[in-house]
Each structure stands twice: as C-alpha cells, then as structure tokens.
Nucleic acid binder design. Structure first.
Lengths: 220, 220, 220, 220
DNA sequence: CATGAATGAGAGTTCATTCAT
DNA sequence: GATGAATGAACTCTCATTCAT
C-alpha cells in the first residue's frame, strides 16, 4: 500500500502546488484576470494538466475558498478556551483581522469577490463559514448574558461587529490607506483596531512583524 | 462660440448617456462582465461610437468613479451646516451609508473593485475622495475638541469610523446577509446601523423605503 | 437607399461566400471535421469574422440545410405541370436523385448526417421538407386513383419509393459503388434508376454529363 | 504452446470487450462523439490500456466494421439452402434489413459513416463485403436464369435491390420517419418492406418484437 | 499487463479595439 | 459624428496519444 499512498500524496501535492500558484497570481491580478495558462506556465506544466486536478477554473476558486474558510475557522477556534467572554470576543476579532491581513488573497476570494456561478448556499464550504459565524454569535450572546454588552438582537450585534472588522480588512486590502503617509499605515491599522475594539490590554500579536506588513504587496 | 458650446454640450450629453447606461449594466453583472457592445446596444449606437467619447473601457470606469466621488461629496457637504459636531458626524455617516445603499454600483466601483491599470493616486478623482475624507477628519477633530470623543490620533479615529460603515455597506452589497432569514435582512441592516452609530434620535431617512430596500436587486 | 441596399447585399454576399466555402469543405471532410478556422482561412478572413454572419457553427449547418431543402423543393415543383401522374412521379424521383447526385454535400447534410443539437422538428426548414414529402404523397395518391398503382397505404408507398431513391443516392455518395469497374459506375447508376423506376421512356436528363459524373469527387 | 495460446485468447477476450463496449457507446452518440476515455471508463481500464489492443481509435472502427461484415455475411449465408431463387433472394433481403434494424450501430459504421483515413479498398473487410455482394448477384443471376426476373445487367439489378433495402434501413436508423404518427412507424416499416419486396408469403420474422422495435432508441 | 501522468494541437468562441467610409 | 466591417489576441476546455514506471 506504500506505493499507492505515495501516489495519492503526489497527486495531492500537485493539487496544493496548483492552488498555491493560483493563489499567488490571483493576489496580483484577481481571479478573473488570471488564466489557466498563466497558472500552467508558472508551474511549468501544460494547461491540460491543470484539468487533471480540477474540473474547471471555478473548481480552483471553490477549493481555495474552502481552504480559506477552514483556515479562518481553525484560527478562530483558538479563542474558545478563553473564559472571559469579552476577551474571547476580542481574540475572535483579532484572529479575523489577522487572517485577513496575512492572507489577503484568501480574504478577497472569500468575502470581497463577486459571486461566481454557483449559489453560495450550495457550496460545501458554506457550512464552515456558518460555523465561524455561530462562534461569533455565541461570543456576543455570552457577553450580553454577563452584562458586558448592551442587550439587543444578537444577529444585529454580530453583524455590526463583523462589519467593523470586515470594513478595515477590505479597505486595507484594496489599498485604501493611501491617504496616510506610507510609514504610518501599520500604526493606523493597529490603532484603528484598538479604537474599534476599545482594546487597552496587552496584545500577544504584533501587527508590525514582517508577515503582516502588507503595504508593499497590496495593489489598488 | 455658441456653436462650439452647443457641440460641447451635445458631446457631454452623449457621455452622460453612455455613463448612465454603463452604470446600470455594471450593477447587474459587474464591470468585467459588461462589454462595450452591451453598452452600445443598450443606447442603440455602434460600439465604435463609444470610442468617440471615451478612449477605452477603463476611461468609462474612471469617469464613473469620478462621478461617484462627486455625488458622495455633495451628499456629505449637506452635513456642514449642522452645528453640533457629533450630530454632524452622525449625519456624515448616514449620508455615506445611504449613498452606498442607494448607489451600490457606484459604491462598488469606488471602494470595492480592484484597481484597473492606473494607480489611484494618478487619477483626477483622487482629490475629491481626499476632500471627503478631510470632511470626516474635521468632524472627528471637532468632536474631540469639544470633548465629545476620546482624544486619539485623528487619522486612526477617522479610519476606524470609515471602516465600520464601509464594512456594512460592502457586506450588504455583496449579499452577505444570507445567514439571516430573508424577511429580516432589512431590519438587521437598520439595527446594525443604529448599533454602530449609536443613533437614538429620530431619523429622516428610512431604510425600508423602496429605493433602499436593496436586497432583491443585489447579487452575491 | 441605394447605399443601404448595397450594404445589405454585400452582407448577404458574404453570407453566401461563407456558406459556399463551408459547403465545399464539408464535402471533403464532413461537417464535424471542418473548423471555423478552416472556413476562415479559405475565405481569407479571420475566424472572428465568421461570427459576424453566423451565431455559431451550427447556424451554418442549419442555413445550408435550409438552402438544400429549398433547392430540392424548387426542383421538385417542376414536375407539377405534368399531367400523367405516373410520369409526374417519375419526374419527381428523377429530380430527387439528380439533386442528390449534383449536390452530394447538401444531400449529406440533409439526409445522411447525424442530428446536431436542435430537434429536427424545431427547425424552420422542417416545413419545406414536409412540403416536398407532401408532393410525393400527392403523386402517389393520384397514381393510385387512376389505377396506375396498387392501392395500399399512401404513406407506406411513399416511404418505400423514397427509400429506393435515397438508398441509391446515399450509397453512391458514400462511394459504395466501388465494386464496379470505375468506368461503368455512371451506367450502373442510370441503369439502376431505370430498373427501380421501371422507366423505359426517353429521358430528358443525362447522367453522363459532366456535372453528374460524380465519381472522382466522392470520397469513401 | 499452451501458454501462448491462452495469452492470445485473453488478448482476444479483451479486444472483444473493448469492441462491444465501444459499439454500445457509438450507438448512442456516434463514433466521432465517443472518446477513448469514454470506452476506457466503461470497461474500467485506463485509456492507455486500449492502446495495447488497438493501434488507435480508427483501428477500433475497422475492427467493428469487419465484425459487422462477418455477421452480415453469416446471416446471409442462411439463405443459401433455399432452392427457389426468388424466395432465396427475398430471404437474402430480409436478412439484410433485419441485420440493419437489429444492429443499427454496426450498420451505421458499415454503410452510413464517412470513411476514416484509409481507403475502403485497402481494408481487410473489403473482401467479406464483396462476398456478400456476390451472394446477392448470384441470387439475381439465378432468378434471371429461371425467368423469374427481367433480364438486364446483373450488377444493375443487384445494385438496385441493394439500394432499396439500404434506403429504408438508413432512413429508419437516422429517424426519418418523423412525419408519420409515432405509433404507426413500425407498421410503416413493415408495410414498406412488403411493398418493396412484394412479399406476400408468411414471414418468420416479426418487425414488431422488442429487439426490432427500434424507434425509441434511435436518434436523428 | 496496466496505468498515471502528461501534453501538443487544436476546438469553438469572445471582445476591446481600429479604421475606412 | 457615426458606423459596418474586421481582427488579433485571448480565452476555457477537450482529446488522441505517449511513455516511464
């Protein structure tokens, strides 16, 4: 069975290779402006080869989105063991924005792109996305229950919070920080997070490290 | 010079016609999925005619964006005569979100689309956008000056507020309300606006009226 | 209006040119083996140009089939002024086989090809084909009425007669005369027609003339 | 040599399997629309395996045609022991049409398809086809010799008769009975056969039984 | 014997753009 | 000013076929 497994793994490795390459290209130019040929050339295979691993171009998109939702969900689950609901909520928000800033390509495909063909609800990653949203809602509920938060409709509150972090993430990803002096962008991001989340406590994540210094890689 | 002026005006009327038509089409399918031919057919001219008024497809985009920024700026200036800085800020925010929800096509082109070719800073509407942003900053500054607002970096505060409204607008425009029961979407939008803007006073705009009941026209 | 008409005519001339060229190519290799590019190259235009005159490849097929049915119908109507029903029937048969042998490309598309996409009954040339068939049936009916023909079900008789001529035409078009010495093929065709139609009277058409000496142009 | 023989037989079994599967697929969609992959999937082998048994796709076609000609020849030989030449000829015709209606896939490949690459005369089944034709000619000759048939050129008479049955078979196989009411198609076929073959004697084959009720399986 | 992986060649089709009239 | 006609350059996708293992 060793042989069979190795083959399977190679197959899977190729898929990953295609996905990674596609992702990189999408970041630069957007899904619609990347062709199967572009991807094929980058991995030095023929275009036809791509079709051995993905039924069509959209399947690549769906696969990446699924990956994205899984990654995000994984990140967000790390907040689950925090007792204090407000801190948990903050951690949840941080995880979200961190994911967006570190994986702008994924974030774009997941939350910023126009729909492609299939209805969102039919896609198999819809459930994972929903789970992430449930996590958020539970946090909000807990906060309300403990009086740490004004009592209102949970969905409304959750959607509002989501909007705040999504707003920041998407403005930055689309390069709408340009009115700030280049060197201050990161500080502004950090500050805005604080401002929005009213966070005064110490952070265990630092927006200034290399991987999150997104400015130069972003395009308008 | 009468003739020249009339000519110019006719030229300008045609431009407007093209822009309006293009805009309507973009709303449905997005800029990338509308062809010059689509626009030409709609206005019952030949594709070649479009090129008499616009150098290329991108120029249409730029013109529309400029229009958008002008409209938005106009809307936002209406808040200038409000004395109370906090109320002025709220009015400013309302105007923004109202613009987004009533003109999702413009909003998409202005704040959600990927950049096309030219760098944003090179574009002639950059200044107008900046002016709008200055308006926001002034409001924030005034609020801080009068102690209505915690004193922090103005840019950070402004960017944060912008993020909140942009987040909501863009999630709604991309149809990410799907986890809510269809009939509650509008309530959630209204509720979230209240939640974020902490608005308790009477509103002179109503999210439930026809033109802002956006749900059915939006696509994911 | 002179200009407009000339333009229209040119447009129509181009359509004809494309159809003629396509037809020639189909004769050699069959519809499925001819590409839009092949046609474009032959007429020394770009492939995209073809699409200015035909929506897609199938439309070319349909147009040609329609032409074919019209041509055939025209030919068959010439028999209408013959009084004697049997002679009229013979003339009808001759016209049919003559059409097939002189226009093997049309005949192939009309009666020998596999169906392409649209259901035959939906196509606008279905009616013309039906009319031709009605002509045949009327002839058969008249023959029966005058006792020149055994009385049976008209459809059965008509279908039988059609089968005979179609059989010959299609065998010849597919080159299944190869077991006969090359130089006798035409005689055999003529003889078979006589044999099948029991024709002893003088003919006003001659299978030996150039245009009907089909052998060298046919492929297997 | 036992081993070698067994190997050969296995090889042959696989060939048969491929051919049978290919045949079934061709019936539905036609040779040109079936891919090597389609066949491979159906037999649950890889496409490459097909190439161990056939040089290329065309070889499958040739093999099937050969099979077809052999089957037909076999069927037609059954008429040989009939003394009366006219009855023998009728039996011969019946066998032919029965073969066509029961094996439309074979019949299509053998007599209706365009040639693929090789000239018919070069193919090894050409001889068998010719033998079948000789059988027909001998029958015709015998009929003439016994005065049961008008004396004319034997080739002409034979080709004529062939044309009649081929015409019917091919029109039916291509679904050109559409102008008749659905439920009468079988009657028409039967009637036309009678009409053409002038058969009044009892039949031992029945066009109405399941295997020959071809209508629903045929495509246009 | 069997195949997984790969591909060259090419299919139909689309579209922003040009230009002579 | 307007356009009919044309196209180059791409696009996504398919398939018969090969070959190392």
């Amino acid at each position: 069975m060793g042989i069979k497994e190795r083959k399977e793994q190679e197959k899977s490795e190729m898929r990953v290779r295609i996905l990674k390459t596609a992702m990189k290209l999408f970041l630069d130019k957007g899904f619609d402006n990347i062709t199967i040929r572009n991807i094929a050339e980058k991995i030095e295979y023929s275009p036809a080869t791509i079709y051995l691993y993905f039924m069509n171009k959209d399947e690549i998109l769906y696969a990446l989105r699924k990956e994205g939702f899984e990654k995000l969900h994984e990140l967000q689950k790390t907040s689950l063991n925090i007792k204090d609901p407000l801190k948990r909520l903050l951690k949840h928000g941080e995880a979200y924005i961190l994911f967006a800033l570190e994986n702008p390509e994924y974030y774009d495909l997941m939350f910023m792109m126009r729909g492609h063909v299939k209805q969102i609800k039919e896609l198999d990653y819809y459930d994972i996305g929903l789970e992430s949203y449930e996590l958020l809602k539970n946090n909000v509920k807990d906060c309300m229950a403990q009086g740490l938060f004004p009592r209102t409709n949970v969905d409304i509150a959750a959607f509002s919070l989501w909007s705040c972090v999504h707003g920041m993430a998407s403005l930055i990803i689309r390069g709408r920080g340009i009115m700030f002096p280049e060197e201050q962008v990161n500080n502004i991001i950090k500050g805005a997070l604080n401002f929005m989340l009213k966070v005064n406590h110490d952070k265990n994540w630092d927006i200034n490290n290399k991987s999150t210094n997104l400015k130069p890689e972003l395009n308008t």
